[in-house]
């Protein structure tokens, strides 16, 4: 579904992404972890071209993401990649329902009544049907992030990307967002998540990618990664995590 072939990104001397070769299969859940500054966010943002790459090839569902294309083509490509931000980025002047309905109507041309029905279904799915008419300012962080997930799902993407979805949340709200992500994975959604939530990775991920200094240093199934990390930096990272 998502393939990285020799993907590189640099600014002058600084290497943001170094020779990334990896693949996310259809239906797979991949968790990307590592210390801050390792390039995890940059990596995931190259998939929908919120970040550019300097060399290499990146394909999403068979399409070359970084090929030269018109802005209309890029918009169409982006509409097929579901993206959930760390800071939710809900549109504050619209209700939760309007947030979810907006893009299917104005990007995909879905009719208003149909968009509304689908939006209500999605809000139900994330457990927020009762808050459909509330504005983001009236919702807690966990609720806002769940609406953001519904908003991304409304575009019916073949894959969902999560950029540290729970890092900006108070601890007691992390669980409700992870629960939604868990149910998405159980339904067979292809997912790529940058996260620090190691329990989530252990229970839901099919593979874990460990990144540092712009490279994927280790890629393994969660049980083997957490029990037996091969790369010394991965070992150090995991022991630092456990120290808390």
């Amino acid at each position: 579904m998502i393939t990285f072939s020799n993907v590189n990104k640099w600014y002058g001397d600084y290497r943001a992404l170094a020779d990334i070769n990896a693949e996310v299969q259809k239906g797979e859940v991949v968790v990307v972890c590592g210390p801050s500054g390792s390039g995890k966010s940059t990596l995931i943002r190259t998939v929908n071209r919120l970040e550019e790459i300097k060399s290499g090839r990146l394909t999403f569902d068979g399409q070359d993401v970084h090929a030269p294309m018109s802005s209309a083509q890029l918009n169409r490509l982006r509409s097929r990649v579901g993206f959930v931000f760390q800071s939710f980025n809900l549109f504050p002047h619209l209700s939760a329902l309007d947030n979810v309905m907006l893009s299917p109507m104005h990007v995909n041309g879905v009719k208003r009544s149909e968009a509304r029905d689908q939006a209500m279904q999605l809000l139900e799915r994330v457990g927020l049907a009762s808050k459909a008419l509330s504005y983001p300012a009236q919702l807690s962080g966990g609720q806002q992030q769940r609406v953001a997930i519904a908003r991304a799902l409304a575009m019916k993407p073949p894959a969902m990307l999560f950029d540290e979805p729970t890092s900006a949340l108070d601890p007691e709200m992390v669980g409700e967002v992870l629960a939604v992500m868990r149910s998405l994975a159980a339904d067979g959604m292809t997912m790529m998540c940058v996260t620090h939530e190691m329990n989530f990775a252990r229970e839901v991920a099919d593979r874990v990618w460990f990144m540092d200094a712009g490279s994927i240093l280790e890629s393994a199934a969660p049980e083997s990664f957490f029990k037996n990390p091969q790369h010394p930096r991965a070992q150090r990272f995991l022991s630092d995590l456990r120290a808390h």
Binding site: L50, S79, F85, N89, F91, P92, S103, V107, N108
Partner: peptide
């Protein structure tokens, strides 16, 4: 906030659509 424009782009809105539905309503307010 710049995140608003990013979110609009990530959802596939073009420049005009993002302006009309997301950015200008907030700018005017």
């Amino acid at each position: 906030p710049p995140g608003q424009a990013e979110a609009a782009r990530a959802l596939g809105h073009g420049y005009v659509g993002a302006m009309r539905h997301v950015l200008m309503p907030q700018a005017i307010r």
